[in-house]
Design a protein around this nucleic acid. Structure first.
Length: 462
RNA sequence: UCCUGCGUAGCUCAGUGGUAGAGCGGGUGACUGUUAAUCACUAGGUCGUUGGUUCGAAACCAACCGCAGGAGCCA
């Protein structure tokens, strides 16, 4: 009868010694002594490794333990004992070791720090590094916390389609979905024949919002959480071609409540990660972003600021700050303006709302001043926009007017318009960029380093 | 798409006109309850590519390729 596997995390948290435990994992580092070796094993369950003492008398020592290199996979059975050395409370003394796979000499991960750029080129191995192990454990926890937040509030999770035929809302360039010729499709050629697979052109979704609205107008409070695709040729640290987005939509809801939910969500996620990912966050605070913990505590403890677009412009004009782009009413706030507000002026997350209608899309609700729409952006230090949302235009005639002005054919959106014909309700929602949130809570500066296999223009490796 | 910067050993980099270097990693050996172990020896390079300037180019010039950062777009 083999001993049940223990994860490194639980062994390191042990209350007492144990005569027989079993770990399985990968060698992070090994140091040889005359009569024994120290092998540090990591299994991804936590940041820390467990140190294993392998005595020269263990069967196979010379043949298979001594030659072990960083990256090799193995399985150890033995006792869990209090460590004689400094630096760790518990360590293992091996009775038997099975080497599943030695690592070739050219295993690229070293114990020393690598540049993010290099690690991206070995995306299949980088989760074995300390930093990326932490990033993806936190990513998993953050995703869980998102569901928890909404489920606790009785929001219904809706799986909106990834393939869509509505060139929706003009929210950016789209990828088209086509069939390919040949058995394997390796040629990448569009299939012969005029017929579209779906009967009309189809695309990868840029937002689940419009579909989300239909479900909110039935189930009241819903949220989506899934992949989103944008074909923009963006080359920045916060844009990717494929990313995940969370989009709640609430019926009988105005902008005020919408903003409150967004702020509550951001705060909830920060608190959850602080509570449940302490060890990982410590690494980020030490090696990635010195100011991280202070910022997260700040977000947890203080309330967010709120200003209207007009107030924000006034603040920027009065700031006497030199901007590359001028600040003016009616124009979109530039990245540098947003960052000034959240990083310099308020030094905390800020929600900017009520934007001029001219710079916002057709579905946002017109305010009574006839000049602004009930839109909002939540800005955070270091990232900029993390949430974008609005109250939706629920009045049929005004929506039609907006669509006509923007040259959108009503036939294409007939089902969206229908919502305003059959029991329309005030409703609102927003989109939270999952990766941007992850960047915010980890301090990792590049979106490509919080996505397992990032897709950006010119790069779809792995 | 625009602007800027960078491409030298597996990795991180030094080398600014005179013919290729270090640390880490790899290999071999020694030593040690070690922990980014230590010490010695050793292998490893078409200096991104192509063309030009020069007696001579890793270095200077041009084009191209790749990557990174910023802008726009937005999550």
């Amino acid at each position: 009868m083999t001993t049940k596997r223990s994860m490194v995390k639980s062994l390191l948290a042990a209350e007492e010694a144990s005569s027989q435990v079993r770990v399985q994992g990968w060698v992070r580092t090994k140091r040889d002594s005359k009569a024994f070796s120290f092998v540090e094993i990591n299994d991804g369950s936590c940041l820390a490794n467990i140190q294993v003492i392998v005595d020269a008398t263990v069967p196979g020592y010379e043949a298979s333990i001594l030659p072990l290199r960083t990256g090799a996979s193995l399985e150890v059975e033995g006792g869990l004992v209090e460590s004689q050395g400094k630096g760790q409370k518990w360590e293992m003394v091996a009775k038997s070791v099975i080497v599943h796979g030695q690592a070739d000499e050219d295993y690229p991960l070293q114990k020393k720090g690598h540049k993010a750029e290099f690690l991206r080129s070995i995306a299949h191995l980088r989760p074995r590094s300390n930093l990326f192990g932490c990033v993806f454990r936190v990513r998993s926890r953050l995703a869980y916390a998102v569901h928890q937040f909404f489920q606790q509030r009785d929001f219904v999770n809706v799986h909106t389609p990834i393939i869509t035929a509505s060139d929706c809302e003009g929210a950016g360039e789209m990828f088209q979905v086509k069939t390919v010729s040949g058995e394997s499709g390796q040629e990448g050629q569009a299939k012969n024949g005029e017929e579209e697979f779906f009967g009309k052109p189809a695309f990868l979704t840029v937002s689940g919002q419009l579909e989300g609205e239909t479900f909110a107008c039935a189930l009241s409070n819903i949220y989506t959480f899934g992949p989103t695709f944008r074909a923009e040729n963006s080359h920045t640290t916060r844009h990717a071609s494929e990313f995940w987005m969370i989009e709640p939509e609430m019926a009988f809801c105005d902008l005020e409540a919408d903003m409150s939910l967004a702020e509550e969500l951001v705060k909830y996620l920060v608190c959850d990660v602080l509570e449940n990912c302490a060890e990982d966050l410590e690494l980020f605070g030490k090696f990635v972003d010195k100011g991280l913990m202070e910022r997260l505590h700040f977000v947890r403890d203080r309330s967010f600021e709120r200003v209207t677009y007009t107030e924000a412009v006034d603040l920027l004009l009065a700031s006497e700050q030199k901007f590359e782009f001028p600040v003016e009413y009616g124009a979109n706030l530039q990245s540098e303006h947003e960052r000034y507000l959240t990083e310099q002026h308020f030094k905390c997350p800020v929600t900017v709302y009520n934007y001029p209608k001219e710079i916002k899309p057709f579905y946002m609700r017109l305010n009574d001043d006839d000049k602004t729409v009930a839109a909002m952006d939540l800005l955070v230090p270091g990232i900029g926009e993390i949430v974008g949302g609005s109250q939706r235009e629920e009045r049929l005639e005004i929506l039609r007017g907006n669509m006509e002005r923007e040259g959108l054919a009503e036939e294409e959106y007939w089902w969206y318009v229908d919502l305003r014909r059959y029991g329309t309700v005030p409703h609102a929602g927003f989109g939270l960029g999952f990766e941007r949130m992850l960047m915010f809570v980890t301090g990792v500066a590049n979106i490509r380093d919080v996505i397992p296999f990032p897709r950006v223009p010119g790069w779809a490796e792995f």
